[in-house]
Design a protein around this nucleic acid. Structure first.
Lengths: 219, 219
DNA sequence: GTCAATATTTTGATAAATCAAAATCAGGGA
DNA sequence: TCCCTGATTTTGATTTATCAAAATATTGAC
């Protein structure tokens, strides 16, 4: 049974790995977890010894199959807890991340199963992020960044940003995972997109920086 | 902000203090928490330095006002979480203690407040144990041990035992906090009590050892 | 191909919590 | 009163996770 710290390192590496093409730089891991590089190096050696990562000094790390499995287990817990806090306890969309960050490490399997059941075995968390199933399989959905999209009709799949303020803003403007909208135009030089959101009045503008956190699917 | 370990020591001392007449022996604390005596001694000095206990070497410890307040805060969390797990998530009466033991240290105030609200600001947990209020005031109820009771009519106030098996047995026999019953007779030499429980068929027998964990009130 | 800038690793320390085992104390019985 | 027994404290180590700062490697610029 990995410690909470080890779980956090695995999660961070998973997060940073992206498509898994190339190994994750140790410095990225360190800054993701807000520890000094030396601390991260030490931990990488430890994780390597436990068979959770392949660590090549000065090159980087990647998760082994075992490490990836462990990371997905934590991710599943995280997202189920988030969803539970929003759906059942009515906490704010933006508050739940921090809470889940700690609960994910301490909840028993039995309690997790109960939460999963109570939520009806959901496949996405409040941000629209997919929830790995109990076997650790990640339901992949093919979304592209709104920042790269041209005019057309889209559905918002996921908000990949854990900070509360963007979440709150989107929510206020009627934009949440599942919502459909028309991208009217995308002024790339200015970095501004204009949308007509289903169920909302008028036209909403947002910048490329925000749009970069929105995963959408053309419909 | 005290660590989870510190909170556990405070809780243990509170538990063992009883009426607070005399200081708690260090050995009791050590065995309650399943650590070696030396470890407990070290921690007592630490807690003393933090102003949470009065520690007199070779005599024992007692909680200071600050320590008592902290202990009650943890107790409140523990009991609210237990109740939540039973009432809202439908976990077994006997399973929740272990779960609460860890959650009590990590839940945010905001989440706790939400739980409290959702449960309607309850004053007793699933074992019937009183829940300190948000100001740390403990609603005392005057119960006596069933092991000391003579024939008569009683109401079960509290089961002071965290192990699941007794809880499950009682529950199966229709006996839970609030339940009323007649104590038909109490055979002290044999150590057996016979009860007629409201809402249950026939007569239920139980031994003094179990009865010792039941707090009742004559009605 | 050499060098400087940047990233990474090493080294030496620290804090929290713990243990095992040796040393010490306190109180009751002879 | 003296000593033995059992409780407690000390001492010296260990584990996990961390930092600061020195040492080292890599890489892109020239």
């Amino acid at each position: 049974m990995p410690t909470a710290t080890v779980e956090n390192y695995l999660k961070a590496i998973h997060q940073l790995a992206g498509d898994g093409e190339r190994p994750v730089a140790i410095g990225k891991v360190a800054s993701e977890l807000e520890v000094t590089p030396g601390t991260a190096t030490t931990m990488m050696k430890h994780l390597g010894g436990r068979g959770l990562v392949d660590y090549v000094p000065r090159r980087g790390v990647r998760l082994t199959a075992a490490g990836d499995e462990a990371a997905l287990r934590v991710l599943r817990r995280h997202r189920l807890v988030e969803l539970f806090l929003v759906e059942v306890l009515g906490l704010d969309w933006g508050d739940v991340h921090a809470e889940a960050e700690v609960l994910e490490h301490v909840i028993s399997d039995k309690l997790l199963a109960r939460i999963d059941e109570m939520l009806g075995h959901p496949t996405a968390d409040p941000h629209g992020a997919p929830i790995p199933d109990a076997q650790g399989r990640m339901p992949e959905h093919a979304g592209a960044s709104l920042a790269d999209a041209g005019p057309g009709r889209y559905q918002l799949l996921q908000v990949s940003e854990d900070d509360g303020s963007l979440l709150a803003w989107l929510s206020d403007h009627g934009l949440r995972p599942g919502t459909r909208f028309d991208l009217l135009d995308h002024d790339r030089p200015a970095g501004i997109l204009r949308l007509r959101i289903d169920g909302a009045d008028g036209v909403t503008s947002l910048g490329t920086s925000a749009a970069g956190h929105l995963l959408v699917q053309a419909i």
